[in-house]
C-alpha cells in the first residue's frame, strides 16, 4: 500500500493558495489562477488535493466535474510546450489527480484509503496475497469472521466434495443446488454489510463535522468498526469468488 504523505488536519487545502513561481500572483494552488502555469506538486492527501474535507459521503458528480476541470489545467498534453520543469510538474500533478480521482470516486476504495490515512491496516484479502501465502506456505493474515465460522466450514466441505466429484466426472445436482443457495445467502450478507458500512460513513462524517471536538477514542472506534466490516465483506467476496470458480471449473 502507498503511504500517506501527510496526516489529516495538517495539510494545506487548495484554497490555501501560495505565490506562483512564474508570475508571483498569490492565487496559485495546483495551477496559477492568474497566469495558468502548473505549480510544483504539494504533498497532500487525495481529499485535500480536491479541496475536500476527509468525509466519506461525497458527491461523485461534482468530483467528476472537478476532475475534468483540473485535467484541463494539469494534463501533460496541455503543458507540452512548457519547459522541462513545467512538464515534470504537470506529469506529477496529473498522475496525482488521476490517482486521487480513481480512489475517491469508488466508495469502497475511498473508505479503504481513509482508513489507511488513519493508520489502520486491512487484512490481506487480495487474490495475489492468497496466492503468495499458498506459494510460500505462510499463514495468511486473514481471520474467519466468528459469526461465519460454522457456515464457512460447511461450505468448504461441500466445495471439496464438488471438486472431487468433478474430478471423477460425476455430477450431483442436489449438491450444486445446495451450494447455489449458500452462495445466494452470502451475497445477501455482502449487501447487508454495505449498509453497515454506510452507517460507519455517517458516523465518521458527523465526527469530522464536529471538528476539533472529536476525540481520538471516538475516532479509533469508528474506524475500527469500518475495518471490521470491510474485512468481513472482503472475506465473503473471496468466498463467493471461490464458489464461482468451483462451480465453473
Amino acid at each position: 500500500m502507498t503511504e500517506s504523505l501527510a496526516t489529516i488536519g495538517t495539510r494545506p487545502l487548495p484554497e490555501e493558495t501560495h505565490s506562483c513561481w512564474s508570475c508571483g500572483s498569490m492565487r496559485a494552488a495546483h495551477f496559477c489562477e492568474s497566469c495558468g502555469k502548473v505549480q510544483p506538486p504539494q504533498p497532500v492527501d487525495y481529499f485535500a488535493f480536491f479541496g475536500l474535507p476527509p468525509k466519506l459521503n461525497l458527491d461523485v458528480a461534482t468530483l467528476e466535474k472537478d476532475f475534468y476541470e483540473l485535467s484541463r489545467r494539469l494534463h501533460p498534453d496541455l503543458n507540452a510546450r512548457g519547459g522541462s520543469r513545467v512538464q515534470e510538474w504537470s506529469l506529477e500533478q496529473s498522475s496525482m489527480l488521476n490517482d486521487a480521482y480513481r480512489t475517491l470516486r469508488d466508495p469502497i476504495k475511498r473508505t479503504e484509503y481513509l482508513l489507511h490515512l488513519e493508520g489502520m491496516e486491512l487484512e490481506e484479502q487480495s487474490k495475489s496475497a492468497t496466492e503468495q501465502a499458498r506459494a510460500t506456505g505462510e499463514v495468511k493474515k486473514q481471520i474467519v469472521p466468528p459469526d461465519l465460522l460454522e457456515e464457512v466450514f460447511e461450505l468448504n466441505m461441500q466445495l471439496e466434495e464438488l471438486r472431487t466429484q468433478k474430478k471423477m466426472g460425476e455430477d450431483d445436482p442436489a449438491l450444486i443446488e445446495e451450494i447455489g443457495k449458500q452462495k445466494l445467502a452470502l451475497e445477501e450478507k455482502h449487501e447487508a454489510l454495505l449498509d453497515e458500512l454506510k452507517a460507519g460513513w455517517k458516523a465518521w462524517d458527523a465526527l469530522i463535522d464536529r471538528g476539533s471536538a472529536a476525540n481520538a477514542v471516538e475516532r479509533a472506534q469508528i474506524t475500527g468498526q469500518m475495518v471490521d466490516v470491510l474485512n468481513r465483506r472482503n472475506y465473503i467476496r473471496n468466498l463467493v469468488r471461490d464458489v464461482n470458480e468451483a462451480l465453473e471449473s
Partner: peptide
Amino acid sequence: GIEVAGGVTDKIILRNSTIPASATQ
C-alpha cells in the same frame, strides 16, 4: 505489477487506470 515472494505478481497499477498514474512501494 511487481514480483513478490513465491513468484507471485502483486498488482500495483490496475489496467484501465487513467494515465499518468502512479504507485508507491
